[in-house]
Amino acid sequence: MPTGRITVLGLGAMGSAIAARLRDTGYTTTVWNRTAAKTAPHTAAGSTAAATVPDAADAGDVVLVVLLDHGTVREHLEPAAANLKGKVVVNLTTTTPDEARSTAAWAADHGIAYLDGAVMATPDMIGTPAARLLYSGDENAYAIAGPALAALGGAEFTGADAGLASLKDMALLAAMDLMLLGYLQAVAMMRTVGVPAVETAGEVESWLAAMLPHGKEVAAIVDGGAYDTGGQSVDFDRRGLASIITASREQGVSAQLLEPHLRLLDELSATGHGASDWPRIIDRLTIPK
């Protein structure tokens, strides 16, 4: 059975699931939450409740942070910097890449071994093979915390740049979000003729399953950088997308989700790239710094 002292800061749904999993796998757990009443189920199950973040930091060799946002993380960690010195802090709060890098720099200044994490799972998935957790930052910290992190689900170290786990998480979430918006566009269109949403969702799932492998072909075009394979062009895609937009409007369905895509294609065509492979649209997504 694993041994070690783990502190969990934050007992929302995810923090509670993490604390319970670590406790159930044999770790000595200390918990802290801003609303102290939330610690009661955990103390009843065998955890120790800390009254303050510094006390919680003192109690753990590895400190897992599962709070609301970046600002909350810094608000609670900064007063406990001396207590965290020499320890491993794993931040599992959702943050942006630059926020993760900022906290990593702060931790380094205070002698704290820091890992930033991204939880690609719902609370009920914690501790199962379906849970995927990404980590980046101090590789030695990952080695130290590794056994405990492995208890939470599939653990992946993405690199020494503390922002990488967050970046990968946000990128995959962006893909998911746009895909699910596409589901809703299809549902809205078909609902105008009485087709239930669940039926359209099944059709979309089958169609996308067939199309997803082509994503690697698109990626190869982007990595090649020439955009001259002779495949589907920007101008061809513009015509097809314009037809989808027209069909939506004919059915009384807004095309607001589709119009930004067409704008990007129109910009490419207007700058002389109408004959390029349509994945060249990625050039329009890069914002100059």
Rank of each mutant, 00 (worst) to 15 (best):
Pro2Asn: 13
Thr3Pro: 04
Gly4Asp: 04
Ile6Asn: 03
Leu9Trp: 03
Leu9Arg: 03
Gly10His: 06
Leu11Phe: 10
Gly15Ala: 12
Ser16Tyr: 05
Ala20Val: 12
Leu22Ser: 07
Gly26Cys: 06
Tyr27Met: 03
Thr28Val: 08
Thr29Glu: 08
Trp32Glu: 03
Ala36His: 08
Ala37Ile: 08
Lys38Trp: 06
Ala40Met: 06
Pro41Asn: 07
His42Gln: 13
His42Asn: 04
Ala44Arg: 12
Ala44Trp: 14
Ser47Ala: 10
Ser47Ile: 04
Ala49Gln: 05
Pro54Gly: 00
Ala57Thr: 00
Ala57Glu: 00
Ala57Tyr: 00
Leu64Ile: 12
Val73His: 14
His76Thr: 11
Glu78Arg: 09
Pro79Met: 03
Pro79Glu: 06
Lys85Ser: 08
Gly86Val: 10
Asn91Trp: 11
Asn91Asp: 11
Leu92Gly: 10
Thr93Ala: 05
Asp98Gly: 14
Glu99Asn: 11
Thr103Gly: 09
Ala104Asn: 13
Trp106Val: 06
Trp106Lys: 07
Ala107Glu: 09
Ala113Gly: 13
Ala113Ser: 07
Tyr114Phe: 08
Val119Gln: 01
Met125Ala: 12
Ile126Asn: 03
Ala130Cys: 08
Ala131Asp: 02
Arg132Thr: 15
Gly137Ala: 13
Asp138Arg: 01
Tyr142Met: 02
Ala148Thr: 05
Ala150His: 10
Glu156Phe: 07
Glu156Cys: 14
Ala162Met: 06
Ala162Gly: 05
Ala165Leu: 05
Leu172Tyr: 08
Leu173Asn: 07
Asp177Lys: 09
Met179Gln: 08
Met179Leu: 07
Tyr183His: 15
Tyr183Gly: 13
Gln185Cys: 08
Met190Gln: 14
Gly194Ala: 13
Pro196His: 06
Val204Phe: 15
Val204Pro: 02
Val204Tyr: 08
Ser206Asn: 07
Leu208His: 14
Leu208Trp: 13
Leu208Val: 11
Ala209Tyr: 09
Ala209Lys: 14
Leu212Arg: 12
His214Glu: 14
Lys216Cys: 12
Val218Phe: 15
Ala219Leu: 06
Ala220Gln: 06
Ile221Trp: 03
Asp228Thr: 05
Gly231Met: 04
Gly231Trp: 02
Gln232Thr: 14
Ser233Gln: 02
Val234Lys: 01
Val234Gly: 00
Val234Gln: 00
Asp235His: 09
Arg239Phe: 13
Gly240Ala: 12
Ala242Cys: 07
Ile245Ser: 06
Ala247Asn: 12
Arg249Ala: 14
Leu257His: 07
Glu259Phe: 07
Pro260Glu: 11
Leu262Gln: 03
Leu265Met: 01
Leu268Lys: 00
Leu268Asn: 00
Ala275Pro: 03
Ile282Phe: 12
Arg284Leu: 10
Leu285Glu: 13
Lys289Ser: 11
